[in-house]
Amino acid sequence: MRILVAKVGLDGHDRGAKIIATSLRDAGMEVIYTGLRQTPEMVVSAALQEDVDAIGVSILSGAHMTVFPKIAKLMKESGLDDVLLTGGGIIPDDDMTALQNMGVGQLFPPGTTTKTIVSYINEWVSVNRQF
C-alpha cells in the first residue's frame, strides 16, 4: 500500500505529519512524504507519479476548507476517483462534516491514535481499491 503524506500551504508545523508518516511506514505501508509548502497541484501530481492508494494531508493553518476541496477537484480531474483523500489537523467538527459531505474521507483531530488512522486507511483501501 502506498500513501502520500503532504503539508499544503504555508503551514510550517510538520511534526504531526512526520509522526503519522512513520506510523504508517511501521505498519507496513510505503510512505511518500512531500515535505512542507506544497500546492494542491503538487500533491496531486506526486500522487499520480507515485501511483498511491491514499493521500493524507496534515493542515494546521485553518485553510482546510480551501485545500481539501481543491485537492479533491484536482484528483477527480486526474482520474484519481479510487484514491482516498484523508488527513487531519485543527479542523472544527462542522468543517469536518462539510468536507466529508464533499467526498473527503475521515479526518482526524489532534490526539487521534496512530492505530486508529492506520486501521482506517487499511480498511478503506481494502474495500475501495480493486486491482
Rank of each mutant, 00 (worst) to 15 (best):
V5P: 08
V31M: 05
G9N: 01
F68N: 07
L36F: 15
F68A: 04
T112A: 14
L60M: 13
E50P: 04
V31Y: 06
G12T: 12
G88S: 06
F68K: 00
A47C: 12
M1K: 03
V83Y: 09
S45W: 02
L85W: 01
Q49K: 15
G35K: 06
F68T: 07
V127P: 00
I117D: 00
G28P: 01
T116N: 02
D11Y: 01
T86V: 11
D81C: 05
N101M: 11
M102A: 04
T39S: 09
Y120L: 03
G103C: 14
I3M: 08
V118C: 06
D26A: 00
D51P: 11
G111I: 14
R129W: 11
H13L: 02
M75V: 07
K73I: 05
I20F: 03
T113N: 01
A46R: 00
A17C: 14
V44K: 03
P69S: 06
M29L: 08
A21P: 04
F131S: 02
G56K: 05
G16M: 00
E41S: 12
I19F: 03
L99Q: 08
D82A: 06
G89W: 02
L99G: 13
I20M: 01
A21S: 11
L74W: 03
L60N: 10
A47H: 11
G35P: 05
E30Q: 09
D95Q: 04
A63K: 12
E123T: 11
M75I: 09
V104N: 03
L10P: 01
R25S: 13
M42A: 09
G28F: 09
P110I: 05
L10T: 15
L48Y: 08
K70P: 04
I19M: 00
T97I: 14
D53M: 15
V57K: 05
Q49A: 15
I55R: 06
S23I: 00
P40W: 13
I3N: 10
T34Q: 00
T114M: 02
H64T: 02
I121D: 01
A6E: 10
R2M: 10
A54N: 14
S78M: 01
D95E: 03
S126K: 14
A72S: 07
I3P: 12
R2A: 10
A21I: 02
